[in-house]
Computed example of a mutant assay.
Amino acid sequence: MIIFDKTERGRTEIATRGQTVAPRLRTLLLLVDGKTSSDELLRKVAGLGLGQEHLEELLQAGLIQASGDDGAAAVSTAATATTAAVPAAAPAPQAAAAPAKSIAPAAPIPLEQILPPGQTQFEAIYHFYNDTIKSMIGLRGYGLQLKVERASSVEDFRELRQAYLEAVLKAKGEEIARSLRGRLDQLLYLGERPPL
């Protein structure tokens, strides 16, 4: 079992809200606390489409580290094996001008990076709401979960956005609510500009 903790650089990233970490990865970074096992962390963020490779990305960026000597050795071995097995990614082509309605001012995010493979927008939002309500809000989110079950369109999900964000803010605080809002807005609006 590997337990990760934030490095000094990771703590600075969270404290200063720097722009070096993507919103989805920021949620994972926020949850790294030096007490929770990597398996438990990955269960908590499964609804965000995050997996082992994202933990390794934070590790390679120097934002997290394994707690204890055994964990560091295991992670070092795993990271070396992963690096050797995975060829380097080709650089992403430069986008021309970003459309007026992009999520990020720099360039639009491709749909395949927003939607999990094989899921429609409706299914992705449904899973996001269910997984994060369960892991972030717990039993207090029961009423919200019922509303998710009754939703029959993306528009219904958009109407739940504010109540969901307020419940997460109350349960987990501003940083996690902000991070989840970024991921939720990507799913709800797929490249359109979300409401403020």
Rank of each mutant, 00 (worst) to 15 (best):
A151H: 08
Q162M: 08
V154I: 15
R161A: 10
T82W: 05
A89F: 02
P93S: 13
T120G: 05
T83I: 09
P105M: 08
T80G: 02
P87H: 07
Y126E: 14
R150H: 15
K101V: 10
V154G: 07
H127P: 01
Q119K: 13
P91Y: 07
I133W: 00
A84Q: 15
L144K: 03
L165Y: 05
Y164V: 08
K134G: 07
E166G: 00
E123M: 07
Q162K: 04
A107W: 10
A107Y: 07
S152F: 02
A151W: 10
D131S: 11
I137K: 03
M136K: 07
I125L: 10
E123P: 00
A106T: 13
G141I: 01
Y129T: 03
T82L: 14
E123F: 05
K101T: 15
A81M: 10
V86T: 15
R140A: 08
S102L: 06
R161N: 09
A89C: 01
P117G: 05
A96S: 09
T132I: 12
G143V: 06
R140Q: 09
A85E: 11
S153H: 03
Q94P: 09
A107D: 00
Q113E: 10
Q113N: 14
P91N: 14
P91F: 03
F157G: 05
L165D: 01
A100F: 04
S152E: 15
A85V: 00
T120C: 06
A151N: 06
R158F: 12
V86K: 09
